[in-house]
Amino acid sequence: MGTDPESGAPGDETPRSLSRRVVLQCGGVVCLQAWLLPMAGCGTSTAPAAASGSALRGPEKATPFARFLTASERATLRALVDRLIPADLTPGAAVAEAENAIDAFLAAFLTDPPLIYAGGPFSDRAGAADNDFERFIPLDAYEALAWRLVIEGSQGLPEREFNGPIKGLQQIYREGLARLDVRAQQLATGILPAALGDIVAAQLADIGLDTVLAQVDALAGNEGFADLPAPLRDLILFDPSDATVQALVDVAFPDTLAGTYGPPEYGGNRDLVGWTLADFDGDVQPRGYSDDAVVNADQPGPFDSLLPPSYGRGAEGTAATARAGASHTGVADVVTLPLVVAPSESLAAIILDAGGSLTALKRCLAPWTTPPADAIWTWSADHA
């Protein structure tokens, strides 16, 4: 399990920075799907029992959720996810209750079976009598050890430290959430980020330095992170000098994406708000798709201009789609959207190399997202 929070002194980890727009920079929905699957535990279990259809359904009763975080820690986490996917990207992670999915994941091994792999084959959202997704699949010994290392860490146990000590997500969250509250209290005493001007200029330019300082002056001194106005929470989250906070953001951002847009059986995506926002039908089996849904094209959306010609009706269809996308977003005339698309094998390798770290993912994708100024933008494909 996680350790007690430290006093709040910054650690010695490499400082890292936050970007809310990393999903678009990483190549859009395809990369998002590939990135979320391991974070949400939505993979296929390799347990021997999973070979039979009945085993895929899990136990007879739904697997209950457990909690790892305290009520105060959950309030701080809710305030954090609210800034990682804010309400201006309606409806936002707080409305989707992504913090509950994260807490359930941290407490995965406090239930039996662990809350890692949802069962199958169907939920009850498309005609099935029962929701099989609520019954999670038991893990084999190898899977259990691997996931305990991720969630709980090695904890000094010899059987877990065959590759050296590992800090688990429970400890990262507990230390990081405590640090957020410490930083909130420090703001009222005048302890501001050394890079205050740069943070405001880069991330809070629409608010302005005077407004930020006025909000700091209005603090009583007993506020926690959850009590701060949104700009002051951003001020803490965007401070690259606080390694403890940045270590938390590094894991919390992909976990927040999973909690917002993943299946609700993992604890988030309340009332399917994440899927509604993305205009995603969700799981449609056993009913399946209607003939109309299969045959007729969707209405153009704001990102259709990013698709290659093979997704439209030739070059003419793609141009029309791009124009429709520009009109949909309110952008007049021509929209120029430079885009690099890596072959799927390369993209998969990049995601694996990132090892679950947001910072590492952005670093791995840098050659694709920041090409030379004179680069020629082309589409690439895996096969003819």
Rank of each mutant, 00 (worst) to 15 (best):
E97Y: 04
E143R: 04
P91T: 08
E152Y: 11
P86G: 12
P138C: 05
G156K: 09
A118Q: 08
K167T: 15
P113W: 01
Q155A: 13
L157A: 10
A62N: 05
A104Q: 09
N163I: 14
F122Q: 03
P158A: 13
L106V: 10
I102V: 15
P114H: 03
W147D: 06
L115Y: 02
E143V: 10
F65W: 09
I137C: 00
R74N: 13
P113M: 03
A98N: 11
A104I: 10
T70N: 02
A96L: 06
V150N: 05
F122C: 06
E97C: 10
G156Q: 12
S154D: 05
E97Q: 13
D132S: 14
Y142I: 15
A96Y: 02
D88F: 01
A129D: 11
N131L: 09
P86M: 12
E152M: 12
L69Q: 06
N131F: 07
A129L: 15
Y117G: 04
D124A: 15
T111D: 00
Y142F: 14
R83S: 08
E161K: 05
A126G: 02
G156W: 14
D130H: 14
V150K: 14
F68A: 05
D130R: 15
P158M: 09
N131A: 10
R160T: 12
R74K: 13
R67V: 09
F122K: 00
G92W: 03
T70C: 04
L149P: 03
L139R: 04
A62M: 05
T111K: 00
D140S: 06
I151E: 00
D112T: 15
I116N: 05
R83I: 01
L89E: 07
A104T: 12
F105R: 14
G156L: 12
A128R: 06
E73H: 02
A75N: 05
L157Y: 02
P138R: 01
E161S: 13
A66V: 00
A66G: 04
G156N: 12
A94P: 04
A93S: 10
A79V: 08
A126P: 03
F122W: 09
P158L: 11
T70G: 08
L106C: 07
F109H: 01
R78A: 15
A118E: 06
